[in-house]
């Protein structure tokens, strides 16, 4: 029997001698990871939702009444040159009236044909990286310095609320992630500690015969790797199955990319190796 065969046999002994412990560990880790996966999907989906809403966020810049129409192209050019502004669209008084009619459903300005009271404005399309409270405020400050601008409007409160919600989701995810990783680590360490304690006598004898720490540790490290990696992968398989079975009319579930999932499973497998080492550390002293 080669060393590798011996190590693999030890690994299989660990698993089939304590199937309940191994299965319990696998299931508890899988459900922990599934919880995290679900949160990941929910966070990704809500992020996509917010991003889509944010992309529709514009800034309206109203032009002072006394400004002559002839100077508008120069103002449009100057506003378009402000950092963060993607494009500028001019809204004339008649166009503003059309928009209002479209929104309300009737023309509220019948009889005001010669004295349209609606202001002229520019609709600014903002670069995605500036669609933040800080970015938008910076653009607002820059444009409001101009004397030919009477007012600037954008959904400031909604943006603040959206940012606060996204930050909450992100922070909660981070805390949940740390908590789940810690729970997974403790659970896996205890499982490996239990199965290694059951074989302490054999361990001691192997060491007396000259077995090295690495030789003794490897089966437990592989066990940790397998349980960590497979339970993480099983969690994602359940998510994929659920995604195929459940469809939402209003939005689509955003699942991480295959590369992200593989990195996640790999990280959990590494976590398993660490838990394997921590589980038998005392026995190796």
């Amino acid at each position: 029997m080669s060393r590798i065969t011996h190590i693999l046999k030890e690994l299989s002994r660990n698993l089939y001698r304590n199937p309940g412990t191994a299965l319990g560990s696998f299931l508890s880790l899988m459900f922990l990871f599934l919880l995290f996966d679900l949160y990941w999907v929910a966070a990704g989906t809500s992020e996509e939702f917010y991003t889509r809403l944010l992309s529709q966020l514009n800034m309206e810049v109203f032009i002072s009444e006394e400004v002559a129409d002839s100077t508008l192209p120069a103002i449009e050019e100057a506003i378009g040159a402000v950092e963060g502004v993607n494009s500028v669209e001019y809204i004339s008084r008649p166009k503003a009236r059309e928009e209002l009619s479209r929104l309300v459903g009737i023309d509220l300005l019948v009889g005001y044909d010669s004295t349209n009271p609606l202001p002229r404005s520019f609709i600014l399309n903002i670069s995605p990286e500036y669609l933040t409270t800080v970015g938008m405020a910076g653009i607002e400050t820059e444009i409001s310095k101009r004397p030919d601008i009477s007012d600037i409007f954008y959904s400031k409160q909604w943006l603040e609320k959206a940012e606060s919600t996204r930050a909450t989701i992100r922070n909660f995810g981070l805390a949940l992630g740390v908590l789940i990783l810690l729970t997974a680590l403790i659970s896996s360490v205890n499982n490996i500690r239990l199965s290694s304690r059951a074989r302490a006598v054999g361990f001691h004898q192997m060491r007396l015969l000259g077995a090295g720490r690495f030789f003794l540790a490897v089966p437990f490290l592989i066990e940790g790797l397998l349980i960590g990696g497979i339970s993480a992968a099983a969690g994602w398989l359940l998510i994929y199955y659920a995604k195929q079975e459940i469809t939402f009319a209003q939005f689509e579930l955003i699942v991480p990319t295959l590369e992200e999932i593989l990195i996640f499973c790999g990280t959990m497998a590494m976590l398993g190796i660490i838990s394997g080492y921590l589980g038998i550390r005392k026995l190796l002293r």
Binding site: E10, R17, R199, G202, Q205, L208, L209
Partner: peptide, 13 residues
């Protein structure tokens, strides 16, 4: 070293 008895024993697994 081949050990027999005392602190030496067989590996139960």
């Amino acid at each position: 070293i081949g050990g027999v008895g005392g602190i030496f024993d067989l590996m139960p697994s």
